[in-house]
Design a protein around this nucleic acid. Structure first.
Lengths: 220, 220
DNA sequence: TAATATTTTTAGATGAATCTAAAAATATGT
DNA sequence: ACATATTTTTAGATTCATCTAAAAATATTA
């Protein structure tokens, strides 16, 4: 697989929302900042290789193999994002570009070892799940902190707003990815919350809560 | 700079032994497993970009800018090698191929942060020095353990033989990169050594000693 | 130094990924 | 449903890195 082929597969995956949906030529062109005619060319090639199902003028969808391929790229991308944030202290919104490059590195051993080094994370710094080696998602129930019930416990897995001021706020208040969070109380009037984070009690506004993703412990 | 251009610059650097020596077309072709005619093409392009000095039929050498470029690639390569060995537990002889890919990742911030994460190492797992950001080597005095005097102290920085059996031997005897080593005594008869490694006393054969590189603490 | 061997370059072709411009198919609005 | 708009594909050109085969420059050696 060439670098470019991988990029197309990933784009089709994202546009199809991981569901092998039919995706249009123009949509791919826009997503990849390229021309529709280039997309047609590449899509034909991918079709010949059996990575996508293609019918002219109708659209493309990922084949079974194409889907597996996409998941493996997504897995690499997200593992690298975790690495960049957790080990190299990048901010959550600075990692995408570099991860786009790192995801193309070819070495199964590398990814296995990186995965182990990171402690087998199941979500990336944006709270998106990391596919397993076999291409399976452990399904993650991800909710905004502002939308969960009192007494809900979970793990902070991501941010909605990744602007610098917000990330700085989290830093100052020592709220980080992977922190265990429990909702203690909720103020109906302004939607602000009392939460317990790593055992520490904090009061946060609704504005903050509506930008933090919680991975809910599977209740049943 | 394209990926291919970077590979050529690196090859010219290595063939010229970091000295901006004149390098022949055939030598580059062999080093890169490509054809001389391809080398000529690329070398012309690099010359137009000012990265090398080229005179037809005579050879190429790196320009000042070309040399800086090469050093920055070497820096990235070696930092990644340290990462792979120290953080991901790769064996010393497994890292080259992956580092060849990683060295092309474009992000200054990434390399700065990686450097910090690794504790600003000055040599890679093979004992070769890592150029600074500015392209300078802190000069490293690197000697085979078998060739230093009694009472010499230093840091284990690399291996000459990187075969699996030898690396396994090192593992079993808990000799690793960065370990502090002091030569306590030397047996003239067979060249075997008593050494102290991280405070622990070990006796090693000459065969082992002649495959371990020591970075000598600057004596004067 | 003349003949031969080697090295290096040129000329022209190929494959990958892209583009523009025009043609073909499909979708939309009245 | 028909004319128009939009989407998609085709055809042909371009750029990059590579190749083969042949020509040119340089080196070697008898």
């Amino acid at each position: 697989m060439t670098l470019s082929e991988e990029d197309y597969i990933k784009a089709i995956y994202h546009l199809g929302k991981g569901e092998k949906t039919l995706v249009s030529t123009n949509a791919i062109a826009e997503q990849m900042s390229t021309k529709p005619s280039s997309v047609t060319d590449m899509v034909k090639k991918l079709s010949e290789k059996g990575l996508v199902n293609y019918r002219r003028y109708k659209g493309v969808s990922l084949s079974e193999i194409g889907n597996k391929t996409a998941l493996s790229i997504v897995r690499k991308h997200r593992l690298w994002e975790v690495f960049l944030v957790e080990k190299l202290d990048f901010a959550w919104d600075e990692v995408h570009e570099v991860a786009e490059q790192l995801e193309h590195i070819k070495s199964d051993a590398l990814i296995d070892k990186l995965d182990a080094h990171l402690g087998f994370p199941r979500v990336d710094p944006h709270g998106d799940p990391i596919p397993s080696k076999e291409g399976e998602f452990k399904k993650v129930i991800k909710k905004l902190l502002s939308e969960v019930d009192i007494k809900t416990e979970g793990i902070c897995v991501g941010v909605k707003d990744s602007s610098a001021p917000f990330l700085k706020f989290l830093d100052r208040n020592k709220i980080a990815i992977r922190d265990a969070i429990k909702v203690l109380d909720k103020e109906e009037f302004d939607g602000s919350l009392d939460i317990e984070i790593n055992g520490r009690k904090v009061h946060i506004s609704n504005q903050i809560a509506s930008n933090l993703y919680l991975e809910i412990k599977e209740v049943e």
